[in-house]
């Protein structure tokens, strides 16, 4: 195992984040504060509590998941796409590193960044709403697993993308709608039955629902199902990455 390579990639990627703190941390936090102001304070007072939880509190897990999922994809896809774009990927391809080590370095850094942003948002939310976390350890586990899972997806996207348009295509047209429609701001029980059934096909819903369960002890689907889905996604994404590296798809000519 090339531990030094993992450490070098991880440190390099984290240094990039720390060079741009406004973009890395302030931007998602400000966006979340705006959501709190609009949905929590302005509109939230007019909403009825959901499963006994006030609307302002209800949206906290959804907001964290929304940011963690989109940030994980963005961080990881950019992290590996940028060396491809610049051509500096030659160094990774000619170094004595296994695909596992490359993935660990890049995905580890991307997941760390988005998990930290998620925790900052959690901290900010305490300033806006009275929040209690029913299962804090599980909450941390699900936060880190989701960050890891979506960072793997972002890594695949970064390997696949041939240009910046393709890089933004998937987050904008697929990830963001899935996360928004996955119950970030509502319970799917609030939907008409046909849309509730459609929502069951949305993979993001299972992750958001599981995370919400860790906060309130109840959610749209069972926590066991959410955990199975996270495990399934992680295994699928790892399989795709293994295939990319073993075939050299869009990496080696």
């Amino acid at each position: 195992m090339n531990y030094y390579a993992i450490r070098a990639i991880y440190t390099f990627e984290m240094a990039r984040t720390l060079r741009t703190p406004l973009q890395s941390f302030a931007s998602p936090v400000i966006s979340t504060i705006l959501y709190f102001i609009v949905f929590g304070s302005a509109i939230g007072h007019r909403m009825i509590p959901i499963d006994g939880v006030s609307y302002g509190v209800f949206i906290v897990p959804g907001l964290i998941m929304l940011t963690v999922m989109t940030q994980s994809v963005a961080n990881a896809s950019f992290g590996i796409y940028f060396p491809k774009f610049l051509g500096t990927i030659y160094e990774h391809l000619s170094a004595p590193i296994s695909p596992f080590e490359i993935v660990t370095g890049y995905v580890g850094a991307a997941a760390t960044k988005s998990a930290v942003v998620g925790l900052i948002i959690l901290g900010v939310s305490f300033l806006f709403v009275p929040l209690e976390i029913a299962h804090p350890v599980l909450m941390m586990g699900l936060l880190c697993s989701t960050a890891f899972c979506f960072s793997l997806l972002g890594f695949i996207l970064g390997l696949w993308a041939r240009n910046f348009e393709q890089l933004s295509f998937v987050p904008t047209l697929i990830i963001t709608p899935l996360v928004f429609l996955g119950g970030s701001f509502y319970s799917i029980d609030m939907l008409p039955s046909i849309w509730r059934d459609v929502s069951m096909l949305n993979p993001a819903m299972y992750l958001i629902s599981g995370f919400r369960w860790a906060f309130f002890g109840n959610s749209d689907v069972s926590i066991q199902l959410s955990v199975v889905f996270i495990g399934f996604f992680i295994a699928t994404f790892l399989g795709i990455i293994w295939w990319i590296f073993s075939t050299g798809y869009r990496l080696r000519s």
Binding site: N2, Y4, A5, A15, L86, G87, E91, S94, A95
Partner: peptide
């Protein structure tokens, strides 16, 4: 093996020390 490519492929925002240190790490050296 050490490889110096034909094109000037470097990350523009990284420092000289940062990018050289990355290379050493990638090749498994402390």
């Amino acid at each position: 093996i050490g490889l110096v490519p034909q094109e000037l492929m470097l990350e523009p925002f990284e420092t000289v020390m940062g990018t050289v240190s990355l290379s050493r790490g990638l090749f498994g050296k402390a």
